[in-house]
């Protein structure tokens, strides 16, 4: 045996909550994206563990799909970060208060 299934779930929950706290508490846009990445990774860990628990390939297949979702999310997210940085000159999420580029 490796470990009880619940321990893997707890590890995944801890990582997910850390990513969530990072997304909520940090103000830097790049750190917010990093928090989202941590959350996606933690959900993948829980899925792989469930795949082993029930001896089914569904969890691993879903994790492979999550990899694609994470890749596209980070691509668009970082492009948005660059666009925001170009528009306002700052990466601080609290400082993005204007909808138009000129009104700041």
């Amino acid at each position: 045996m490796i470990v009880p299934f619940g321990h893997v779930l707890l590890l995944a929950a801890l990582l997910f909550l850390m990513g969530l706290s990072c997304t909520i508490a940090r103000r830097n846009l790049v750190m917010i994206l990093i928090g989202v990445e941590i959350m996606l990774n933690a959900s993948g860990l829980a899925l792989v563990a469930s795949s082993l628990r029930w001896m089914s390939m569904d969890g691993q297949a879903l994790t492979a799909l999550i990899l694609g979702v994470a890749a596209s999310e980070v691509t668009v997210g970082l492009a948005l970060v660059m666009a925001v940085r170009r528009a306002s000159g700052s990466l601080d999420a609290d400082r993005q208060t204007a909808l138009k580029e000129d009104d700041r």
């Binding site: 490796i2 994206l33 792989v48 795949s51 082993l52 691993q60 994470a70 980070v74």
Partner: peptide, 26 residues
């Protein structure tokens, strides 16, 4: 950990895509 939990292909993907591509992009 993915390898330990019986997913060798996903372990390779995790290192190539997450630790490699995504983090280099960051």
């Amino acid at each position: 950990l993915f390898y330990l939990l019986g997913a060798p292909l996903l372990a390779a993907f995790e290192i190539i895509i997450y630790a490699g591509a995504i983090m280099v992009l960051f």
